[in-house]
Design a protein around this nucleic acid. Sequence first.
DNA 1: GTCTATATACGGATAGAC
DNA 2: GTCTATCCGTATATAGAC
Lengths: 210, 210
Amino acid sequence: MKKEEKAKIDQSTEEKIKAAAYKLFTQKGYAATKTRDIAEEAGINLALLNYYFRSKEKLFELIMADNMKQFMFSVVSITNDDNTTYQEKIALIAETYIDMLIAQPDMPIFVLSEIRNDPSGLIKKMNFDDIILRSLFIRQLKSAVEGNEITPVDPLHIIMNILGMAVFPFIGSPVLKKIGGMSDESFNAMMRERKKLIPLWLHEMLRKKG
Amino acid sequence: MKKEEKAKIDQSTEEKIKAAAYKLFTQKGYAATKTRDIAEEAGINLALLNYYFRSKEKLFELIMADNMKQFMFSVVSITNDDNTTYQEKIALIAETYIDMLIAQPDMPIFVLSEIRNDPSGLIKKMNFDDIILRSLFIRQLKSAVEGNEITPVDPLHIIMNILGMAVFPFIGSPVLKKIGGMSDESFNAMMRERKKLIPLWLHEMLRKKG
DNA sequence: GTCTATATACGGATAGAC
DNA sequence: GTCTATCCGTATATAGAC
């Protein structure tokens, strides 16, 4: 028996359903995922899904919240760490995201494509503005600008660049793999390279010019 | 009567259906879009959809192909232009993409999230490798590396960076707007800023050090 | 070409036995 | 808690009148 199957048996039924739902929702999105598929993937009966979670939608909201939490808040501890400079924070954000996304490459496209339809107004409810824009990271960036250490730029541009360079390759991976003729493993190797490169690139971008 | 409505009337039925399908598929994805919604949006009868396009799937493939074409191939003419340097090409790619995405912000997440399930193996069929990696743009980049003009780097990293910086903000726009407390218009203004900034940033990244 | 009415299948959810 | 059988709404697609 494979390890994977054994692990599945060791889980409680509820956990098996959650794991299956996580996998399928994240891979295919809400509308394209059928409750029957989840049941089959979990190796359980369809009726049990409703027994444990009442409805497809309830189950989805649970999974979605989990994903959002990981995707958005894994960086909060980094951006507010008193013991690191903004440069170190940039490196840590890139590393953390890339490591996370190598393990769960479908997460960002899932989160961002489900968000676009604003199913239950999830984003509106959260206060990213406070969490990000008032973070120590942003304050450190601003004070570096004021102290004439780096070239003046809207911190939002920097955030877009870090996320764009770290997250976008995973969203576009099918196309990028095709372009580069890369296997999954060589793609991942390239992403690991980027953990080192992104901080360097950001450093060059922010460098005070002549 | 509004211009928009008049334009709708002036279109043939087939065009109305295609326009409605384009809008809804791109906004909500294949599985979440109902043929009834398309019919209603087009202001026609449901039966006509099948009369003209035989099935939801056929209609989808048509729209998808259109989107792919725009999303991927609008840059081909730029990347093979004999009369521009690689620096000018970078600027043109950023400008072209950002202009396109301001007009059609849902396009990339639609294309990339539908691609992920590899519905009919669309990407596998296209030869991006030839189109991109053998483009003049890439050859110009490589020869600049060999000529010791810029810092050595895999051209794929550069492609990821250009696309990441230009395209990702649109994919993440709901979250980014929330973070920055931006309206649609101020978001677009920021994207227009990026048309100028991205080439500058790329220039700094590629700059020969030490 | 365009409509109404309908066939057919599918997917979410529940009833009820064990 | 877990299963089988089934209900019922919804979605795609078509038949057939006009």
